[in-house]
Design a protein around this nucleic acid. Structure first.
Lengths: 358, 358
DNA sequence: GCGGTTTAGCAAACCGGTTTAGCGGACCGT
DNA sequence: ACGGTCCGCTAAACCGGTTTGCTAAACCGC
């Protein structure tokens, strides 16, 4: 992978046009500093010579890369195949593009996120799903690059955008409660790497808090038996419900912390001979595009994923300007429950029984 | 978004260590050129000063960006939310990462792919789904950057990786034929931009060719009425089947050119009161992860999407070395039919009738 | 003690742009 | 005719690394 022929540089154009390098630069960047016909002469020659300014050289000189980094603790293979990240990235990408910025994914490189951050040349970073315990946060802050955090409430001193996870989760739980459900299974998201486990402020904890807050008034509490976790994927959801079932859980309703897991749970339920929602109600979280096309369509908590990405970009771009003056801006976006077909009135089993005792 | 404090440069480290800039550079890149203790001294000082070489400066000096570009005619918002691209990108990413390369998405910028190519600083390009008629191909070739094409057979003179679309499509059609189907609807992929329309060598054309080749021996030919196209998305599939139905098509089997469209078609079929596969058989193309989890599980043509991405990277990385000597390497990957639950024996209507005449 | 080879490190050129300070000439009013 | 201002452009410094001679000292055998 070697360059075949040397590409035309600004010096070539300058020589051909009989002007200085500066003039060529001006012709493209600040044409008002040159006379109109000099500009057009230079531009003509440039097109003839097929001159395209080297982006790297430009980055170095301007000390701007016109790139914003998307930092995630997950590897690229899971990022790209995860619909949630897909929608989020789409939001980031459109907003970034509108601002003339490119986006660069920063994911653990050979297992090290730190190394990946070093290699990345970006003007700003959007860190998604990173807790305070991640050393990379300090690394970035020290490097002086502006950044905003997404989906992590731990870093109150940094600008960030979050979603009302507690509220949304509570909505979901209350909905099931109203349908008469009393035996619940929570399918939770397992953090990507071991070091992230038991993070007290992560998405998982916040949603769990929401479930609990809604269930408590009804006298229901979620013990460890009522919670099962796994990777936030379809397979993870299948696995989770299977495991719970195998160890004796007999819920009438499932609170899944992601749509992917909810869909997986629907699938697993079918395998177990359960009809959704007749025998088992399932509510997800996220409201992916896909959620409306499942069979039955998935009842779920909607969160504005794309907008989250766009807001993150907005915050990042606005952030630097009044850096030290104002307190860092925190954005909290609303969630809402979307009732579709995967939830129904509880029918089987005696109501009020929280645990079927195996 | 301004840099707060100037980061430590190689000159700072050199001064602090009492050596030349070159020595610092050597200490990291070619430590064998320095004495062992000088190396460790420089490295210690570098860590103390929290020195991290500026990637951009390095790129400029080495004239390598350690980045490969992923060129697509679609916008980033569709790329990121499309499961096919997701899996493909995941393949590219893992292979690239293994080779120490980052990946950069190159998508139309303000509608212009040319502009996007100019802005991108990459060592090589993987162009996916680009036909010969795209001027960008010429642009890249002229710029001397190595590139490989994916999913386009038009550019035989460039290295590329393709999948046996004809063969796979034929398999799908024959499968339905064997189940007794005679009335077919093809749901095709519509090219992303108007200029790409009617590309004679695109994926759509190849798969259509496969269908036709398999159907012809049975005396069935696909006229325009039997073909409907739309964007390669779930919504596109829904829309397509609805449109076909509305204009009077009454097929017993659907040949969809992508799984997303097939899933959409399943959804639309249900809305129309058709049971899949009892009243309507559907076969997709791609074999996305998702395909095994639909209800019923989707019969589809499997293609090795991830591997396609990996092979593209391999070809790109190997490409430059023996550039002019060998003929450009072409890689053709096999497809196979995966029979699941969305296809069944044709039951309704008189067999042998190709068109129900409204 | 001498020429010849290594070794360790330096100075400077270079990558390809941007940006600042400044210069010569045209134009202006008086 | 003269000093001042404006216009159009240039020369050179700069961004932060890498890489290419090259040199001075150390090492070598004899």
């Amino acid at each position: 992978m070697e360059q075949a022929t040397r590409r035309t540089t600004i010096a070539d154009v300058a020589k051909a046009a009989g002007v200085s390098k500066a003039a060529v630069s001006f012709a493209f960047n600040t044409p008002e500093r040159l006379s109109a016909d000099t500009v057009s002469r230079i531009r003509d020659i440039a097109t003839t010579l097929d001159y395209r300014p080297d982006p790297v050289a430009r980055m170095l000189a301007q000390r701007r890369t016109w790139t914003i980094g998307l930092l995630t603790p997950q590897g690229l293979d899971v990022i790209f195949t995860n619909p949630y990240f897909g929608e989020f990235s789409a939001g980031v990408a459109t907003a970034a593009e509108a601002a003339g910025m490119a986006i660069q994914f920063i994911s653990p490189l050979h297992g090290s996120l730190t190394r990946a951050v070093d290699r990345a040349s970006v003007d700003g970073v959007i860190a998604v799903g990173l807790g305070a315990e991640h050393p990379e946060v300090g690394q970035i802050r020290r490097s002086g690059i502006p950044f905003v955090v997404v989906d992590s409430t731990a870093l109150r001193d940094e600008p960030g955008v979050t979603v009302d996870d507690e509220g949304g989760a509570a909505l979901a739980a209350r909905h099931l409660l109203e349908l008469g459900h009393r035996r619940f299974l929570v399918i939770g998201i397992e953090p990507p790497s071991a070091s992230d486990r038991a993070e007290p402020t992560g998405v998982t904890a916040r949603r769990l808090g929401g479930y609990r807050a809604a269930l408590a008034p009804a006298g229901i509490e979620l013990d460890d038996e009522a919670i099962v976790v796994g990777p936030a994927s379809l397979e993870g959801g299948i696995e989770a419900l299977r495991r719970a079932w195998a160890r004796g859980s007999r819920p009438t309703a499932v609170l899944a912390m992601s749509d992917a897991m909810a869909i997986g749970a629907m699938r697993a339920a079918r395998e177990l001979g359960l009809r959704v929602p007749r025998d088992l109600s399932i509510v997800g979280f996220d409201d992916l595009d896909l959620a409306q096309y499942t069979d039955p369509p998935l009842t779920t908590v909607h969160q504005p994923i794309r907008r989250k990405g766009q807001e993150a970009v907005r915050l990042l771009l606005a952030g630097g300007r009044h850096r030290d003056e104002e307190p860092s801006e925190q954005q909290l976006l609303a969630t809402r429950l979307v009732v579709r077909g995967s939830t129904a009135r509880a029918s089987s089993g005696p109501e009020g029984v929280v645990d079927d005792g195996r």
